[in-house]
Amino acid sequence: MSKFEFPTSIISRPVYGTLEPRDGSAHLMIADATGAQAILDVATPDMMAKAHIIYIPKGAEFGHRLRALNPAQYYEGPSYAAAEQRIAKAFGDAKMGLQVYLSGSEGVMGQAQHAAMQAGVPHTAIQTEHRGSTARRMQCVHCKGITEDVATDPFQCSHCGLHLFVRDHYSRRLAAYQGVNIDAEDPGNVPEAKGIYE
């Protein structure tokens, strides 16, 4: 499956790579939907012997193939929110030498990256590979509400209703892009929404 080429942008916009196996005392792999493919591509039996895979299928059917990798621990859950406590526990118990692999949508990778950083893993040491949806996790700068899976720009905030311009400015701490009111200087003049990468 071909990967989406994100257009070059400002420095705060995350850049994703391709997962590669690294030496480490343990391997924590978190993926959603077609992100599973990136794990299937990188997995080796040695790595799997010390691996914990956390997978959120979102309707994709890779679960049985991931399980067949025979990782030391495997979990499949319905949403990131459902997996969040387990992820927090995994990072809380982790030792130095842990390798972190994230793949799938920006929203899930961003939230998992945040959890890893809270535990003390530098963000530069976390591997990421984008697969699947290009929808964004976005915070409205005005009401602070976060909306998942924002695919169009402008976007009407799901919390406060303001029409927002979806910026490329990204916060790792919030795991979100920034949305800023688009018609503040000309109320009611909201351009027609189109896909963010159209």
Binding site: R22, D23, G24, S25, M96, G97, Q99, P122, T124, A125
Partner: peptide
């Protein structure tokens, strides 16, 4: 580094 520690640490 060989034990998988990050450079920043």
């Amino acid at each position: 580094a060989a034990e998988g520690w990050p450079r920043e640490g």
